[in-house]
């Protein structure tokens, strides 16, 4: 028996795409398995680790807990879409050595990209800790991630 399907239209990293998914397909499966956008990682598939964080209409969501059908008509941004001015954040992470294995980093970057837009101006360390508390990192002890985010906020507010 053929499985039922849905056809979606979504703006993915600034490009319109049409995809056919099963009703049960998650956004994570759509991105990784169907569209081969493997930058979005799967660490737990149950909403605990934050590695699959992407933005839907500019807001961070966990792709593993989001049904693909939910993004019909929405704008989705993944780490592959952090280009142009948004890509500066990656360079700042590299400068601070804020990633070791780099597995959690794409999800973290999507969270930070959002933070920097909704909370412009310099950021305090505790504020950043709270904002990143949904993204687990097992390598760094968070120190260099905090350094990078605070630096990114400072540079953005100085227009650097």
């Amino acid at each position: 028996m053929p499985r039922p399907t849905l056809t979606l239209t979504t703006t993915l990293n600034d490009r319109e795409v049409h995809v056919v998914v099963e009703p049960r397909t998650t956004l994570l499966e759509l991105l990784r398995d169907q569209l081969d956008l493997v930058g979005t990682k799967s660490g737990c598939a149950s909403g605990d680790c934050g590695a699959c964080t992407v933005q839907v209409d500019g807001v961070p969501v966990l792709a593993c807990l989001t049904l693909a059908a939910r993004v019909d008509g929405c704008s989705v941004r993944t780490v592959e879409g952090l280009t142009g001015p948004r890509g500066r954040l990656l360079n700042i992470f590299v400068e601070h050595d804020a990633a070791q294995c780099g597995f959690c980093t794409p999800g973290l970057l999507m969270q930070v990209d959002h933070l920097l837009r909704v909370r412009p101006g310099p950021l305090g360390r505790e504020e950043v800790r709270a904002a990143l508390s949904g993204n687990l990192c097992r390598c760094t002890g968070y120190e260099k991630i905090l350094d990078a985010v605070i630096d990114a906020a400072t540079r953005a507010s100085e227009g650097a």
């Binding site: 990784r32 081969d36 956008l37 493997v38 930058g39 979005t40 990682k41 799967s42 993944t78 780490v79 592959e80 952090l82 990656l90 992470f93 590299v94 400068e95 050595d97 990633a99 294995c101 780099g102 597995f103 980093t105 794409p106 970057l109």
Partner: peptide, 23 residues
């Protein structure tokens, strides 16, 4: 010195293929 990690940029851009990313 303080060195840029080999291959780190591609890991951050989501281009690097970890094992689960191979098809």
């Amino acid at each position: 010195g303080a060195h840029r990690r080999v291959g780190i940029h591609d890991r951050l851009r989501g281009v690097t293929r970890f094992t689960a990313d191979l098809k």
